[in-house]
Design a protein around this nucleic acid. Structure first.
Lengths: 346, 346
DNA sequence: CTGAAAGCGCTTACAG
DNA sequence: CTGAAAGCGCTTACAG
């Protein structure tokens, strides 16, 4: 951007002069309270307040050799951006503020992540670390960053080496198990599952939770089906699945879009979701809320907070291994159609 | 975040030594090519490349008195976050890079924007300017920022004083007019409108475009209805609206959620959207794509780019008035159900 | 065309 | 407990 000369802003010297102390004392009053007499400190702080003084983050960064910023990549090419990407970024932004830093999003139009994009930001000292999202088996980024000595924390397991510990994730199995418990407690007798095609790490775990839940909660396992994350295909798979179910049964789904497919397939055959048939989604996405679908909301605030804890450890050079975290989602029951299920006729 | 001592990174001095010149020459080679002999320059640039040198943005900021960053507020409280918030942030992030700067998102859990949040970021010199979104009549932020001398540019008109010029917006009227032209050209004969309750600035303009389009394209004006931005209410309003329409007619909507309401209401009475009834939404949101609804996609990349042009002008202290921009959306036709409308029976 | 000086704003040792 | 010095990395005048 072109250069200009904006109004001069308040600096530490202005505060020092107004308070009648040296600028080091102002700095100490702010950063090392114990090194300054209480009355001096309060006088300085009063002037800081009056003058609305805030230390320049650039000067601090230069002095500390630390940007106080964390980068995160925005997917600029996804045809279907993740529904929770924005809520998660918001959670990160709020967590960052609590950890005295800020987020710096970046994006590229390349289909695959570029190591150079990550490295450049660190070389320019724009960020100290990264938050990774959408990790998947074969994701090259953890190894890249580790090799380059760049701290990072990942929303989503580091599949190629989960022992690394620099991650927090949603406990998908616990989630779908909770969903089964919920529909069982609501009176549904047979519980089917609609997931993604086998082989996706996240999807397989969510399926496991359903299978486990069915065993534990004294309901019959209904049929299972799968479809990729697109509504027409979810709808088609849901129709097949419903052919094997009856009024009074339920379907636990691996995602909200899949649940929407079941929802619409149910409506198409005249079944009322939440009464004739129980349906649960996964993610707590806007789609679920828009269509009033019961869903498993991911604890994004907790995940963001945990990732910053991981980052703090690394940045502090702490040698102890960091604990990865598996956080349990919250069942977000759609109350608008919370009706006792009608008994099936079959 | 706690302090640490990361590996020392390459500085301008490392480049100077390796190239056998003074550090000022390195700086000139990078920033003022005309002040350096071509062969010196290329030698320096070669070393820069080899050493992967990138100037420290903190040092640059300190020297330039310019953060090279733009803030934007993330709505952390919206029950229903805007569907295009993330795509727009992505567009901003890409535009920012083209203007040699980066975005810094911030958020608060307050229901209303806080001036102090904006001022603090400027005082800490974290950002030079702001991008505003979700402006509305009575929005205090433009006046705040103007008074504080903080540059800004707004996605959305500055309603209280559109002459200010620091904005870019979607031409809502042109959009709905295009939608009418499209359904007319597709053979639909009567075109109704589903909008928001009168009084919303954006909604009223979109309605006007429909009214104008109906006049210009030789179709009959169908009934109009309105509903707030929630699916159940959209569905109810759509049912009423469809009572006044027949197979072979179309409905232009002020948003994608409203269009989804019409879509579902049509399905409920056995009409095939895109054949029995024409439906258009507005925003190009994931909702529209998920449900394959024809929609008016907002030119987010162009808007972002224009906002940065506005910012550049202000930051350069340019005295000429900035041009606000009204950008026309793109009609995103859902090809999956692109069928000639069946003639109505009424 | 090239190089030595000054300074952006801050904080961390260090000396009084 | 308080204050003078040094330096983080860079660039913009300015002098050679």
């Amino acid at each position: 951007m072109p250069k200009t000369h904006p109004a001069r802003r308040t600096t530490i010297m202005d505060v020092a002069r107004a308070a009648g102390v040296s600028r080091q004392t102002v700095s100490n009053a702010i950063n090392s309270p114990e090194r300054v007499r209480p009355d001096t400190r309060s006088k300085v702080l009063q002037v800081v307040d009056k003058l609305h003084y805030r230390p320049s983050s650039a000067a601090r960064t230069l002095r500390h050799q630390r940007a106080g910023a964390v980068g995160t990549e925005l997917n600029a090419v996804a045809d279907q951006p993740s529904d929770i990407a924005l809520p998660f970024l918001t959670a990160l932004t709020l967590s960052a503020a609590r950890h005295a830093c800020h987020m710096v999003p970046f994006a590229s139009k390349e289909a695959f992540p570029l190591l150079s994009g990550y490295q450049d930001m660190v070389r320019r000292r724009l960020v100290d670390a990264f938050i990774l999202t959408d990790t998947h088996p074969g994701d090259p980024r953890p190894a890249w960053l580790e090799e380059a000595g760049i701290p990072y924390a990942s929303f989503g397991r580091i599949y190629d080496d989960p022992t690394r510990g620099y991650w927090a994730d949603v406990d998908g199995a616990a989630g779908t198990q909770m969903a089964v418990a919920h529909v069982a407690a609501s009176g549904y007798q047979t519980v089917g599952f609609l997931g993604w095609p086998a082989g996706s790490a996240v999807g397989d775990l969510r399926r496991e939770g359903w299978a486990q839940g069915v065993k534990e909660h004294d309901v019959a396992a209904g049929p299972e089906g799968s479809a990729p994350q697109s509504l027409p295909e979810a709808l088609r798979a849901a129709e097949d699945l419903l052919d094997g179910l009856a009024v009074g049964d339920a379907v636990v789904c691996a995602s909200d879009v899949l649940a929407l497919g079941v929802h619409q397939a149910a409506l198409a055959r005249g079944w009322t979701p939440g009464a004739d048939i129980g349906i649960t989604g996964f993610d707590g996405s806007p789609v679920a809320h828009l269509h009033s679908i019961t869903t498993l909301t991911q604890p994004l605030d907790d995940i963001a907070e945990h990732l910053f804890t991981i980052l703090d450890h690394q940045l502090a050079g702490s040698p102890e291994p960091v604990q990865a975290a598996l956080l349990v989602p919250t069942l977000d029951v759609n109350t608008s159609t919370k009706i006792t299920p009608k008994k099936g006729t079959s």
